[in-house]
Design a protein around this nucleic acid. Structure first.
Lengths: 200, 200
DNA sequence: CAGACCATGTAAAACGTTACATGATTCG
DNA sequence: CGAATCATGTAACGTTTTACATGGTCTG
């Protein structure tokens, strides 16, 4: 049950409303913990009742009023307890790769899979661009070495960097697989893979 | 809802019992669709009632009897329909990366996170070795180019290859992050990252 | 003879997804 | 004035996780 912890870490970088948290989940937290807005909104009252966060009303003239949450000491303690507990392996569930596993069962299906792999590669490339912008924003002109050595809160940078590398591989791998499928079906030579297979 | 489809693709390579399917999920399907044995066992009667698979009792002397399932034509059609439907983005939920996001909030916690990253790197390296063995088993002496050009069912090979690359990056990235955290805490120079940050 | 592997489940609780609902304000 | 953004939920349904349960055979 770490939706709760995902919300708590998101509040480490400053107070936020439910709406702002859904945006933070969209661009950064979703790389390691996916959650839709309804889930986030549902979690906030639970966390507040548990004493891990405290909310306050913020009246706005130009926009609807909002409720802004702060992580409490009890929330930080809960986070510490979570960090010091053992980590379960991450779960992956990707329907597109289920389809890739089915490759070779039907040639018509194979073409659909190739199309979807290219689409996935496009999305992954878009994410890489977004993450690269976010990273340069955090670096603010400094180089990575300086940033990592001097910045106190490197967590958001590292997870964004991880997302960037993950999506870059995702894009390369998906693009290659799509090309390989099409080449096979046309009887043409399969292109070389992005990374050679290691030996035993 | 693609647990159902994950079970169906697993049956494309031959009939299997519930128990065998849980093993297939363990070593290969779990790379793209995680499921515990109870989930697999629960899905089989549903798939049989829907007509997508058909089961038969197999009596064994040396071991407990088992029920072996075969994918039906209706099952293949259902799989085709799934393949031709649009793919939702894959979901990732990884508690360890939630912890990484929290880096910098507390130095004691940071050390725990570094330990867990090393542990994760060990597990990822073990998976890379396992996948490399599985891949060489599938290749059976042929090179990858030949295999991909000539083999009809390349799905299992590609998903295994993908898992291998994913885990290799996972291992490299986790190992580096652990080293970077420790270096920072000791005031030593942060080691260079496995991949340079792309420019804007 | 203990521990691992084969073989299959039930039941309850927790969690996640989807559809629906509402209403204000800003921007083009 | 319509669309986008801000802002927050409820309710129903479906899926996943966790704990529990059982019993045979095989290996050291």
């Amino acid at each position: 049950m770490s939706l709760r912890h995902a919300v708590l870490v998101a509040l480490l970088d400053g107070d936020a409303s439910g709406y702002q948290l859904t945006k933070i989940f969209d661009v950064s937290v979703s790389n390691f913990w996916a959650a839709v807005p309804q889930q986030v909104y549902a979690e906030l009252p639970k966390l507040e009742r548990a004493g891990y966060i405290s909310g306050r009303e913020v009246v706005q003239q130009d926009r609807p009023n909002k409720r802004v949450y702060t992580i409490t000491d009890a929330g930080r303690a809960e986070l510490s307890a979570f960090i010091q507990s053992s980590s379960k392996p991450g779960v992956i569930r990707d329907g597109l790769v289920v389809k890739v596993f089915a490759l070779g069962a039907d040639a018509t299906d194979d073409l659909f899979i190739a199309d979807q792999l290219d689409e996935r590669a496009d999305q992954a490339e878009a994410k890489v661009k977004l993450f690269t912008q976010l990273l340069h924003g955090m670096l603010a002109g400094r180089d990575e070495y300086t940033y990592l050595s001097e910045q106190p809160r490197i967590g958001p940078y590292l997870t964004c960097r991880r997302g960037q590398m993950f999506e870059a591989d995702n894009a390369r791998g998906s693009r290659w697989a799509a090309a390989a499928i099409r080449a096979r079906l046309k009887g043409e030579p399969v292109p070389p893979p992005p990374i050679e297979i290691p030996s035993l």
